[in-house]
Design a protein around this nucleic acid. Structure first.
Lengths: 325, 325
DNA sequence: TTGTAAGCGTTATCAA
DNA sequence: TTGATAACGCTTACAA
């Protein structure tokens, strides 16, 4: 590996002069500057960022961490982050597991965006600080150095359920996601609140605990099929599970929405071709905004007010006007 | 930041003793060991990997680089890489642009997997070396330190086209991807070869240059619609473009496959619900295999023979038996 | 069993 | 305009 030292020797100057050239300081003669630059090119010198980081303690790098590979919209979030980061001359390290911690500490990065549910609140609170702001997606954390960027799940879910009721549906089933997650709680609460406001009864036996994966939706629907009577409408806390449910219904000769309506949440790529009524979340923008707040916080513009992103309902044919009102 | 030095001071020992404890060397007294470990915990010590990397020149980290956010199957590749890497106690840094180079050089990483088409062959050849093996996906590079992991496009594409011909189709259109990419070339070549073997004529005007994105397929189909006569079958170099084409046809009242058959390549998430006949590539496995070869090469088991992954055809209803044989 | 000191590649301070 | 030198956090001979 050719370093600053080799270049210095080849040029017959000191390492500090080379460093000054590389960092575009003006305290170096034009002739020397050019000569050194040429030598760097000839020798194929490339700066070693580890040495630099160790010395300066700064990195202009942020970390994005996630872990669920089933959700293809994550790529859109990454796209938004990546674009903002590039436009602002930062670098981006994406990590898929707890080895993230390695890059978050050890000033290899100046801040991070956290999406991975496995990353514990406690850990984040420990890591965040004056010189290390964090942006969390899909959870709210009350900490002076952590900004939350969350989707407003409550309003669109309320509106969705009210819309379904207005179309004549009265008997509901619900497939929930991981129970501890904030977004699942919020979606479920909106569902229950609207039912209650409409004096519609909901029994706990019509609740199915899933994990946001397609398979759990499939399973929930299969279980549902064993019960005496099908609800009119199965509300799912996300699209993957809704799609799983639709597949289970179709596999068993149950028509959607003829025999049962189904709703999702996310507007994933499959929602449109499947005709799934769902809630569309602006994912690219979500990533972009998260990156923006993070970098602004890194630059000292402190702002940790939780930010709510709004989402909108997309009606498709998995819910129709109910005949027998 | 609390470092080894602070811990040493708090424990009243030297930094090397702390280092020895942290690295589980046996040359340290049991009592001291425990005391130091406790102090580390109390003070919230976390090792700074930058210092370590700089000193040792080793990192146990690999880089994966990509840049196209439209292809949701990239997540599956990442999933495969991530799993193998975790199982082998390596860390993974994912990069989305040429800032990748920063992490590839500067011994922050010990090797990398390259998917990004924007990463130039020359650059890779410059970076790869005795101590820095590279695995490239979807391109062949002849270099003693670079292993190619590519999909066998030719065979399944040949088989696909022959199958389409056997079903009675005779007039073809082709929507190609970026012309310089190896996979596009191979897919197109298979297409032409099979046509020729069957003495079926193909005119250049039936070739449309796309870029693997849905929109370019949509555009190609729109242009096609302007021509005098539609082919029986539009072969697309990937699914995204095929889906774009199908949408364009549907938007214009052309039935698929009634008026025109369509084929894709990739078996993306949408292919199944859209009923698209296509070629399925085992993406998770692709990532897993790439990671495996990379880490084996890092560990000294040198192997840079190009590796071909086979793919298989999935017949769906975007191609049917043609009535008017 | 523990400590001293050099060194990884870089930047920064200060002196020449 | 340039060069010596210390320092960043850590590992590792080698000495005590």
């Amino acid at each position: 590996m050719v370093g600053i030292k080799e270049v210095a020797k080849a040029a017959g100057v000191s390492i500090s002069t080379v460093s000054n050239v590389l960092n575009e300081k003006k305290n170096v003669g034009e002739e020397t500057r050019e000569r050194i630059l040429n030598i760097c090119k000839e020798m194929g010198y490339y700066p070693n960022s580890v040495g630099k980081t160790l010395k300066t303690g700064k990195s202009n790098t942020i970390v994005f961490n996630f872990s669920d590979f089933d959700r293809s919209f994550y790529l859109k979030i990454i796209n938004g982050i990546s674009d903002y980061v590039n436009d602002n001359d930062f670098d981006l390290i994406i990590c898929t597991d707890k080895s993230s911690e390695k890059y978050m500490r050890s000033n290899l990065s100046s801040g991070s965006i956290i999406l991975d549910k496995n990353m514990k609140d406690d850990t984040l609170i420990k890591i965040a600080g004056e010189n290390y702001p964090i942006v969390v997606l899909d959870r709210i954390l009350d900490n002076p150095y952590i900004k939350s960027v969350v989707v407003n799940n409550y309003d669109p879910m309320s509106e969705l359920i009210q819309g379904v009721i207005d179309r004549g549906y009265r008997h509901f089933g619900f497939v929930g996601g991981p129970e501890q997650t904030a977004d699942n709680k919020e979606r479920y609460k909106a569902f229950r609140d609207v039912l209650e406001a409409n004096r519609i009864n909901f029994q706990q036996k019509s609740y199915f605990a899933g994990d946001y994966r397609e398979k759990s939706g499939y399973t929930a629907a299969k279980i549902l099929l064993l019960s005496q009577e099908l609800p009119d409408c199965l509300v799912c806390a996300n699209d993957n599970m809704a799609i799983g449910a639709i597949k289970a219904f179709r596999d068993n000769g149950i028509r959607v929405p003829g025999d049962i309506a189904v709703t999702g949440f996310d507007n994933c790529d499959l929602a449109e071709p499947m005709g799934l009524t769902t809630v569309s979340i602006p994912n690219y923008e979500r990533g972009y905004i998260a990156a923006r707040y993070l970098i602004e916080n890194i630059r000292g513009k402190r702002n940790v007010e939780p930010f709510k992103i709004s989402a909108k309902i997309i009606w498709r044919n998995s819910v129709s006007e109910k005949k027998s009102k």
